[in-house]
């Protein structure tokens, strides 16, 4: 198993060297980037904290860095810690009272939804600086050179591939760390029965806040990378209800209870969207999104554990089956 994992990783890392076109490479990069973001969401989502507000963190990440670069000439490398600090403050501001006052389930989802709308509306309201709904492009540093380290802009997709591959691996590592920590067990207990967990001395607020911080900061990093890679952001694509729901669906479609689940979800949703776009094309406007929406509904009804979750379950059932004596 372990060997297979390393071989798979090596194949993935070597794939772009085999002379693949720009478009497939672009797709792989986007898959890895969204896989990282969905993994970040699932870190808290699978513990019963279903946030519909992660668009807020993605938006803060993308816009703080781009605004800093465009208006104050702050290098994205300095913008990144600024964005992380802003995200941490925002996550604390929303998380602490929510967990302190036991806002869970529907209420938590709707409060976080409001947060992502606040961020989207603030971005639009500050249109004199952010370009409003039209979006904004980071000032280019690629006029003379093909890359600029200080501006975090690279025209080569290969560079982005390796950067985002590393980030994605780091995301999986964080997932494993959280998974193996005591906090995870404690949080699972809390998500089942919060009062009982508190009664045996678990610090519910602190544990939940910790995981929320990890999740929010990962999403923020995803936002920064998205803006720097695409070199264009608009409020709808990084904040608000649409992208927040997309993250949730991606994680659920793949399976948010297993480590590679969100990654499978990202690959699946992206390939589905691209596949539909390529086969149906833009002539019939909206057909691809119709099928996409329909599949989301079917997924939640018939496969709530997601693709990978269901696959693992089926595999284990088959492996166990021979041991059961036939009736």
């Amino acid at each position: 198993m372990n060997k297979a994992r390393w071989i798979g990783l090596a194949l993935l890392a070597a794939a772009p060297l085999a002379g693949m076109g720009d478009y497939p490479l672009h797709l792989i990069i986007l898959c890895l980037l969204w896989a990282f973001v969905y993994t970040g969401w699932a870190v808290m989502g699978r513990l019963g904290m279903v946030s519909l507000g992660h668009g807020a963190f993605l938006g803060v990440g993308a816009y703080v860095v781009v605004m800093g670069w465009n208006h104050f000439h702050i290098s994205p490398w300095l913008g990144l810690p600024l964005a992380l600090a802003a995200t941490a403050a925002l996550a604390f501001l929303i998380g602490y009272p929510c967990f302190r006052f036991k806002i869970v389930g529907h209420y938590f989802a709707l409060v976080t939804l409001a947060l992502s709308e606040v961020v989207r509306l603030i971005i639009i309201a500050l249109r004199d600086y952010t370009g409003g709904s039209l979006g904004v492009t980071p000032k280019t540093a690629l006029a003379k050179a093909s890359w600029s380290l200080s501006a975090m802009q690279f025209s080569s997709k290969l560079v982005w591939f390796y950067v985002i591959l590393m980030v994605w691996l780091a995301g999986l590592w964080i997932w494993t760390r959280v998974d193996r920590s005591m906090s995870r067990l404690a949080l699972e207990a809390i998500s089942q029965e919060e009062d009982a967990a508190a009664s045996i001395g678990m610090s519910v607020t602190r544990l939940k806040l910790g995981v929320t911080m990890v999740s929010a900061l990962m999403t923020c990093v995803g936002g920064v990378l998205y803006a720097q890679y695409q070199l264009y952001v608009n409020p709808e694509s990084v904040s608000g209800i649409g992208i927040s729901l997309q993250m949730v669906f991606g994680a659920i479609a793949g399976g948010m209870f297993v480590r590679l689940g969100p990654t499978v979800g990202a690959v699946f949703t992206l390939l589905l969207a691209e596949g539909l776009r390529l086969t149906i094309g833009h002539d019939i406007h909206g057909l691809d999104a119709t099928i996409y929406g329909l599949m989301l509904v079917l997924f939640i009804i018939f496969m709530p554990k997601g693709i990978l979750g269901a696959a693992i379950e089926a595999y284990e059932k088959r492996r166990r089956a021979p041991r059961v004596a036939p009736a």
């Binding site: 279903v50 669906f249 119709t290």
Partner: peptide, 27 residues
């Protein structure tokens, strides 16, 4: 079909319907 499932799935499934209806209207 999801009445017996986790409460949050009931919320999310209507989120899927949101995408679906928007896309159908566009179409």
């Amino acid at each position: 079909p999801v009445l017996g499932a986790e409460p949050i799935n009931q919320l999310l499934v209507t989120g899927g319907v949101l995408f679906f209806l928007q896309a159908v209207a566009t179409l």
